[in-house]
Design a protein around this nucleic acid. Structure first.
Lengths: 224, 224
DNA sequence: AATTCAATTGCCCCAAGGGGCAACACAAGC
DNA sequence: GCTTGTGTTGCCCCTTGGGGCAATTGAATT
């Protein structure tokens, strides 16, 4: 019996974990039918799907829903909506370094599509939307999202570690990462050779670098 | 008099150099009027402009014109043309890692624009084309071209230098660039420590690296 | 077979990096 | 004033990297 309970729980958990890993798609459209149709499709395909009837509703949810979704995420949004235009939403989201955006529109002209791409939309889907085209776009968008999240995570981590450095340590690490010799660093910063070694050692361990090469990579990625 | 001759020559040269530095724009359109109008505008703005009445004509010129243009370059091409479609040209050029492409079209639907962007076009201009929009797109395209050329140049250079390495030298350089100590490398490759030092030294000078850090960067960029 | 050339290796020396230990200076707090 | 803690420095030792010199080996050439 414990067995069956455990099974039920793990099955649920697994399903949830799978959806998280696959990613979340936020769908925004003022047409309820389309909204539910897209939700059904995406849900069936194993994505964690969230729907909103308008852009403001999503922005509202954004400020509340602080428990951040663990996994890649993209937004699929209709262009023509009464309250807030898809292109306007795009601008607001871009300001937040937000998830990649897919726009969709029925029977629209080239201008809308061009505007969307220029503003950084990942794709522009023309209604009626073909399921394969949609899913392909979602896959790509989530891949981009994942990559961005990873990059941001790495960068965040590095910045945090760099913040633990004192000024001198950072200066020494910077020069060391540029390939300068300890003696050169000592002259340049006008401190004793032994001090350079100390700061260098401290910086290396604070940054988690095992070799000069590691230090160089960290300095590169962390912006010195 | 020598003075005046020299002045005349340098003025010409300077003009040519300026155009090269600004970049070249290849314009392709089957409408002769549009072609000349665009050429006039671009020429006036200081770009080195080249025009072709059809995509095949440009492809033909591509195979002949081997004296490669020294500077950034982009292609501005009409979508609707009798012989070879702009989108088809796009595919062919993409296969050649060619210059960035700007497509233009009159009164076309969203589908064309979307296809263009999906296939990697940098922008899509809708006729009638606004001069400012066009010039802005050209500036961006040439900037992209310049960046690509630089990256390609660096990579080419590095690949050439890497090609000068012997097998062992490359292996040693690879491990050294990963931060391994000489002794570890010796064990891993089953050679004497002194030999590792030799190969390392040779590799460093062949690659033009002054320090381990340089070596690491070169290995990173040159795909090691 | 003799020679030549490149690759590999050992031996040795020097410079640079890593780091322990102790002294010194200086500011903050008792 | 004294203590404490932090930052800096000098001294010394060991390891590692850099490199000159010569011997060895093995293959290619004459």
């Amino acid at each position: 019996m414990t067995e069956s309970v455990r099974r039920a729980v793990t099955a649920d958990e697994r399903k949830f974990a799978q959806r998280c890993a696959r990613g979340r798609v936020v769908v925004i459209d003022d047409d309820a039918e389309i909204l539910s149709a897209l939700a059904t499709l995406l849900d069936f395909e194993g994505y964690a799907c969230e729907t909103y009837p308008s852009a403001p509703a999503y922005l509202q949810a954004l400020s509340d829903d602080r428990p951040c979704f663990p996994g890649p995420c993209c937004v699929l949004c209709d262009v023509k909506m009464p309250e807030l235009d898809g292109l306007e939403l795009q601008q607001r989201l871009a300001a937040l370094e937000h998830a990649p955006l897919l726009l969709m529109s029925g029977a629209s002209g080239a201008l809308e599509a061009v505007s969307a791409f220029r503003a950084g939309a990942l794709d522009f889907l023309i209604k009626p939307i073909d399921a394969d085209v949609l899913l392909q776009a979602v896959v790509k968008a989530l891949a981009v999202s994942l990559e961005r999240q990873r990059a941001r995570g790495r960068r965040h981590d590095l910045v945090a570690r760099m913040a633990a450095l004192t000024g001198k340590e950072r200066a020494v690490a910077r020069l060391a990462a540029r390939g300068r010799l300890n003696r050169e660093i000592a002259v340049e910063l006008d401190i004793a050779l032994r001090t350079v070694k100390l700061h260098r050692q401290r910086a290396m361990e604070k940054l988690g670098a095992n070799s000069v090469v590691d230090l160089a990579r960290i300095a590169d990625e962390g912006g010195l």
